[in-house]
Design a binder for these strands. Sequence first.
DNA 1: TAGATTGTTAATCGATTAACAATC
DNA 2: TAGATTGTTAATCGATTAACAATC
Lengths: 220, 220
Amino acid sequence: MQEKEISQAVIRRMPRYYRYLGELLDAGVERISSNDLSLRMNVTASQIRQDLNNFGGFGQQGYGYNVKYLYEEIGKILGLNQQHNIIVIGAGNLGQALANYVKFEKLGFMIIGLFDVNPALDGVTVRGIKIRMLDELEDFCRENKVDIAALTMPKEKADAIANRLVGLGIHAIWNFAHVDLELINKDVVVENVHLSDSLMQLSYNIVKNQRAKENSRQTD
Amino acid sequence: MQEKEISQAVIRRMPRYYRYLGELLDAGVERISSNDLSLRMNVTASQIRQDLNNFGGFGQQGYGYNVKYLYEEIGKILGLNQQHNIIVIGAGNLGQALANYVKFEKLGFMIIGLFDVNPALDGVTVRGIKIRMLDELEDFCRENKVDIAALTMPKEKADAIANRLVGLGIHAIWNFAHVDLELINKDVVVENVHLSDSLMQLSYNIVKNQRAKENSRQTD
DNA sequence: TAGATTGTTAATCGATTAACAATC
DNA sequence: TAGATTGTTAATCGATTAACAATC
């Protein structure tokens, strides 16, 4: 039985629902209607109901949604009910920044190892996590359950290391290197975080605003 | 005269075109057809032509696109022909990681200041950039042209600082704090980088693969 | 029971793909 | 000129919004 594929547009919105429900929960709110939530989140109530009904009927007519229940269910949908172990390849600033993000652990993402090629970093500890040399990667993956590898090294090395990791049975790659990875195994999940792309989008919108301002000045 | 709005779906793809064209340029390729590019990038030729024609006709029938020319034109569209000055609020690991990204400077994004509230960081220098205390923000913005502020501080403080920056005439906010900013001025551009959202999408897809694998095992 | 609000179907809107005449 | 490939219109596909019957 083939599960119907849920569009990535929907998936992208789920973490945001999860965050808002978490805030409501912390604020002691017990139930919420799709309409009330839509006003807070600046989306349509219809979209909320459609999105949620991709995964099941979590609400109740005449009542709305139970905040705690919905929060937990979305957590399960996103896989937050299980622990995910992460290793970070590249222990530079970004790699160390990720290792220091306490937030991730609260969501079930544990950073269990940092790797680099720079001997000066060998054995250095970041929030209790030891930096290892890259040639220890194979042993480490054999001895530990590693689910996700975050790549924060220069883009030239990313492809080779990604495929080395795929060979070691990793499930997913969280890619910060500014390349499109070409993986030997299509079942491995890839999520790209391209910071310079994000910055270029920002700059496009700045320039767009500048042009709009000039135009309105001309027509004044 | 109202310019027709270009959809964010198109804008999101522009940096990727820019990257591929840059690689072709470095490789000494002089011209490329939408079809050849589509094969490399794994998109349809039709989409490439549609996307580009939102901004103008950069190609030539029977010839294709001149790589250097198209690369430069996309650069202008993205605003990369002008310099953008950035300050980073929050000089923790992530803030320092951003300051160390040499890549950004090549694209015209200059990090000119780092700010924090931690006195231990006062005067410390990251790649030649001095860390200042947050109460110097007003003076600094008066004395320097600041276009973009990157927010890497805890989410509780993000909203207040964002609005303080808006008051100081900043054009754009690159937000790494895990909140939706509520700005007093709607003309300020906001670009969010929500790393935990990205991680949750990753984890959704991991779990989806797990489920698919289990299902196929059952039907075997 | 009456009011509220969901789950779901139908209508609309927008984005992607296909097709082809224009033209280098 | 003939072949190649764009720019652009038309067709399709998918995502969002609206509407409403089902039901708590």
